[in-house]
């Protein structure tokens, strides 16, 4: 069973629909204790990093403990950013810290402004630095749907990199923890393939 964590950051209808489409069994637990029996956890979310404050020490402890015993973890959009150490969008609020670095605004320092509109909305291409579980079977430059203003840095665990004025992590993966900045549930066949890759691996 997959736990879809509903912490009030955006609407889950699309994610639920996509999980159903790939044949996943999921539930939306209301308390962190329920994560103990889950084989995988999905942290979705759109909106402000501040929304992740709801994922308090109890949720974080439960998610960490689930991952330590071998459960898979998948973050989508804000849910992926939360896997990093934090974000300039909500200074002082820590992320889960699985990946090093902090998320920064697309037009903000240290990148300066440019001819790039923010938010970054629409279809942009993925570049894969190496092989990964979640991106397997996808051609270089596959396009997926993004909508966000903050980006996570490129790290050694980046499974996909996208360029929009700056290079940022479009996907990260380390062991059974993965995350994507884009919306696989809104990215047509490519997006469903990525979710299916993940489901098959867990």
């Amino acid at each position: 069973m997959i736990a879809l964590v509903d912490y009030g950051a955006g609407n889950l209808t699309s994610v639920r629909k996509a999980l159903s489409a790939i044949g996943a069994d999921y539930c939306t637990p209301t308390a962190p204790a329920a994560l103990e029996s889950m084989s995988a956890i999905v942290v979705p979310g759109v909106g402000h990093f501040e929304a992740t404050r709801v994922l308090d020490q109890h949720w974080r402890a439960a998610i960490r403990s689930a991952v330590e015993r071998g459960a898979a973890l998948f973050g989508i959009c804000l849910g992926m950013q939360w896997l990093f150490e934090g974000s300039d969008e909500a200074p002082g609020l820590a992320g889960l810290g699985v990946f090093r670095g902090s998320c920064v605004h697309l037009a903000g320092p240290p990148h300066g402004t440019g001819p790039f509109k923010v938010p970054h909305v629409g279809w942009n291409s993925l570049r894969f630095p190496g092989l990964s579980m979640s991106m397997s079977g996808l051609a270089q430059d596959t396009q997926v749907y993004f909508t966000h203003s903050y980006v996570a840095p490129v790290v050694p665990e980046s499974a996909a990199v996208t360029t929009y004025g700056v290079e940022f992590s479009a996907a990260v993966e380390q062991g059974r923890v993965a995350g994507v900045q884009f919306h696989p549930e809104k990215s047509g066949d490519a997006g469903l393939r990525i979710l299916k890759n993940w489901l098959d691996a867990v």
């Binding site: 209808t13 699309s14 629909k17 996509a18 749907y145 809104k186 047509g188 997006g191």
Partner: peptide
């Protein structure tokens, strides 16, 4: 429509209140 596609879907026309918007978003 949402059941048919895995693409961004926008709804407009007659969205007058937060409740109208919530209903559209709830529907997909």
């Amino acid at each position: 429509v949402a059941r048919e596609i895995f693409l961004p879907l926008c709804v407009g026309g007659g969205i007058r209140t937060e409740a109208d918007a919530a209903a559209a978003i709830e529907a997909g």
